[in-house]
């Protein structure tokens, strides 16, 4: 039995160790290396054949040069800042779009709810790429949105939407709104309807009751939803690359270009390490919120 248990634990453990943790350390290591015109395109490489001497040489070849470079070239910190800004505002927009939908679902007749839920989850199963692509046809200069606005007489000249930050916001809201809806819906559905009645009974208007009771009690769902949108949006690549323009700076896109176009692996790795460090803060906050919610339920 002990031998079986060992096997059961060690197989997934070693798999994750080899394919998640080790690669991560490699990224750390390469971020401290120098660019070289070679295969692989960085130095130093660790050659174990040379023993201790080889290791010492390897160690002395590592430095913080790439990180210093990241602070010197304003492209990078601008990209981090702009990623933060885009992720933040699109999270707020997603909340504004998602909350009413979640609220509507939670107040729908119970027999409708599973169907509504299915239609929220359905887009999640369809390709992300396709959902982003769908907006390219809508937002382009001759796209449906411009056609509609021109037809309705709201504008006289077509708007430039595709390849701007506006398109990126729309894309993030559209693809991530289910992640916002589901946790908010979960808290709103559990909300005891008699709490609202009690608030009204004690003199609140319906709107005031919503503000004083529903909103505070759905706080944990709102926070969870915001993190579920904010965290992936920060490192997003597909949306800025397809909907954003050349001036849309997002760190995922910068990393990709650094790697595939400039083939500067050490800098790309340094960019990745910094991005991870930035993500630790929201992830820890998110975990704490989840923990608090679990405790409240007990």
């Amino acid at each position: 039995m002990n031998y079986r248990r060992l096997l059961l634990i060690s197989v997934p453990y070693l798999w994750l160790f080899a394919l998640f943790l080790v690669p991560f350390f490699i990224v750390m290591k390469i971020s401290l290396s120098d660019l070289a015109i070679a295969i692989p395109p960085y130095t130093p490489t660790l050659s174990l054949g040379e023993g201790w001497q080889g290791f010492k040489e390897f160690w002395s070849g590592l430095d913080m040069e790439n990180y210093i470079f990241l602070t010197e070239d304003d492209l990078y910190w601008k990209a981090y800042l702009s990623s933060f800004k885009i992720a933040f505002f699109s999270t707020v927009l997603t909340l504004l779009v998602g909350y009413p939908i979640a609220y509507g679902m939670a107040n729908a007749p119970p027999e409708w709810r599973p169907t509504l839920m299915m239609f929220i989850i359905l887009p999640f199963w369809t390709s992300f790429l396709i959902r982003v692509y769908a907006w390219m046809g809508i937002l382009s200069k001759q796209g449906f949105l411009n056609q509609f606005l021109l037809w309705s007489g709201l504008i006289d000249d077509p708007l430039v939407l595709l390849n701007t930050n506006i398109a990126v916001y729309i894309g993030i809201v559209y693809t991530y709104v289910p992640f916002m809806i589901l946790p908010i819906y979960a808290t709103l559905e559990k909300l005891d309807g008699s709490l609202i009645e009690a608030a009204v009974d004690l003199g609140c208007s319906r709107f005031k009751a919503f503000w004083l009771v529903t909103i505070p009690l759905s706080k944990s769902g709102v926070i969870a939803g915001c993190f579920l949108v904010f965290i992936p949006a920060l490192g997003e690549f597909v949306i800025p690359s397809l909907l954003g323009g050349s001036r849309t700076l997002m760190i995922g896109k910068v990393l990709w270009e650094e790697f595939f176009s400039n083939r500067d692996w050490p800098v790309a790795s340094a960019v990745a390490v910094i991005l991870l460090l930035l993500l630790v803060i929201p992830i820890v906050l998110f975990q704490r919120n989840e923990q608090k919610q679990r405790e409240a339920e007990q």
């Binding site: 005891d192 009645e197 009690a198 004690l202 009690l217």
Partner: peptide, 16 residues
Amino acid sequence: PNKRAVNMMFQSYALF
């Protein structure tokens, strides 16, 4: 309900 001089104690208590 919010304008009535009537208050209710709910079965579930409905404490906030």
